[in-house]
């Protein structure tokens, strides 16, 4: 059912900008990256960032962004997604000092955000799948989300973020998912963003 609706919508969408979703587990730097892209291209950020996981609990959108590279222009909407995890526990928030009731409310919102992000997999035209390069990429979330995107044949650019961190090991990420272009960056420091932009345009602008 949703298939048919989705097909109809994508027919109309072809006439508009494409939607690029920023996906990944919590705390890998999706919002930091989205803010960096948004500020580079429009001068404004689109979301708040925190060490407390699941800061982004709703899809945050910035429309009509434009990237140029090598005489190609890509017009797109950027959608910063809530971080996807298989478990949301309010105690992950209380250990950052949040009090229990607020933490429980945050847990509910985070869960809802995950459902929204998953539903949106039907709507996005392309994805930036963000990894923390200091962490092991072989997790349920990463494998499942990537597998699903691949099955839908949605174009992907893998972003190995936090290369400024100790023990950053982007090579392991590349080895894990060699079938997609990978760019290693630090969204926080702004390192290598040009390469990311070039790769995105190259992959998505026809």
């Amino acid at each position: 059912m949703r298939n048919l609706l989705a097909r109809l919508f994508s027919f109309f969408k072809k006439q508009q900008d494409i939607s690029i979703g920023v996906y990944g587990p919590p705390n890998v730097g999706k919002t930091t990256l989205a803010n960096r892209i948004s500020s580079d291209l429009t001068g404004e950020e689109l979301g708040s960032v925190s060490e407390i996981p699941h800061e982004t609990r709703e899809i945050q959108k910035k429309e009509r962004m434009e990237l140029q590279a090598n005489a190609n222009t890509l017009s797109f909407n950027l959608l910063d997604m809530p971080g996807i995890s298989t478990k949301v526990d309010y105690r992950d928030f209380t250990e950052h000092g949040m009090e229990a009731d607020a933490a429980k409310g945050r847990a509910k919102e985070a869960t809802k955000g995950i459902v929204e992000a998953i539903k949106f997999l039907e709507e996005v035209d392309a994805c930036l799948v963000v990894f923390d390069a200091t962490e092991d990429p072989y997790t349920q979330v990463n494998i499942t989300v990537l597998g699903n995107l691949e099955a839908k044949q949605i174009p992907i650019v893998i972003v190995a973020n936090k290369i400024d961190g100790d023990n950053a090991d982007p090579a392991t990420i590349e080895e894990a998912f060699p079938q997609h272009p990978m760019v290693e960056i630090s969204a926080k420091e702004g390192t290598n963003m040009e390469q990311l932009y070039d790769t995105v345009v190259h992959k998505l602008a026809h």
Partner: peptide, 13 residues
């Protein structure tokens, strides 16, 4: 190997 890890995760899910 990467293939083994990915397949283990995919099957375990």
């Amino acid at each position: 190997t990467p293939e083994e890890k990915k397949e283990l995760i995919t099957q375990s899910v």
